[in-house]
Structures are given as structure tokens and as C-alpha cells.
């Protein structure tokens, strides 16, 4: 169970989702991933992607121009 960080800043949607998806594919169940993005669309798209794949969204927040989504990989 390891924590990872993915820098998807400056990328426009849907690229942050694609990067998150590809990163999650390399992780193991129980691992957590923090995705950092600047496209506000990521705040909705990454949780939506998690929902359709059954991964758990631990937190979403906005810090100034940055969007942070933390998720846990589910088997």
C-alpha cells in the first residue's frame, strides 16, 4: 500500500483523466494516488472515472488554481 503523486498540471481535459487512468493501471489494490491538475474539469472528471471503475475517491479539493483529487485503487 503505497502513496503516489501524479502531476497533471497544465494539461487540458481529458488528458488529466487519461494520465490518472494509465497510472492507476500500474498500481495495486490499496495504493493511493494524488492527482494534481489545473484544468477545473478534472475536479469532476477524475471522480466520475473513479466511479465507473469502482475506485474510491478519498478527497477532492481546490487550492487556488490547482485541483487535487486523492483516490484509492480498488481491485
Amino acid at each position: 500500500m503505497t502513496h503516489f503523486v501524479l502531476d497533471a498540471r497544465q494539461l487540458l481535459c481529458p488528458l488529466p483523466v487519461i494520465r490518472a487512468q494509465n497510472r492507476v493501471a500500474e498500481l495495486s489494490p490499496g495504493d493511493t494516488l494524488e492527482v494534481q491538475a489545473t484544468d477545473p474539469g478534472a475536479l469532476h472528471d477524475i471522480p466520475a472515472w473513479c466511479r465507473v471503475h469502482g475506485h474510491e475517491v478519498l478527497e477532492t479539493r481546490q487550492e487556488g488554481h490547482e485541483v487535487i483529487v486523492r483516490l484509492r485503487v480498488v481491485a
Binding site: P14, V17, Q21, D45, A48, W49
Partner: peptide, 19 residues
């Protein structure tokens, strides 16, 4: 905020979506 329509569709259908 603009939703991603492909993800929205997948969610409505209850299927996985690979982008």
C-alpha cells in the same frame, strides 16, 4: 463546469470506460 460526456454516458449505463 463542463462534464465529460463519454464518462457521463458510461456512468448512466453502469459500464467501465477506457479513454
Amino acid at each position: 463546469p463542463k462534464r465529460n460526456n463519454a464518462l457521463w454516458t458510461a456512468e448512466q449505463l453502469g459500464i467501465k470506460l477506457h479513454i
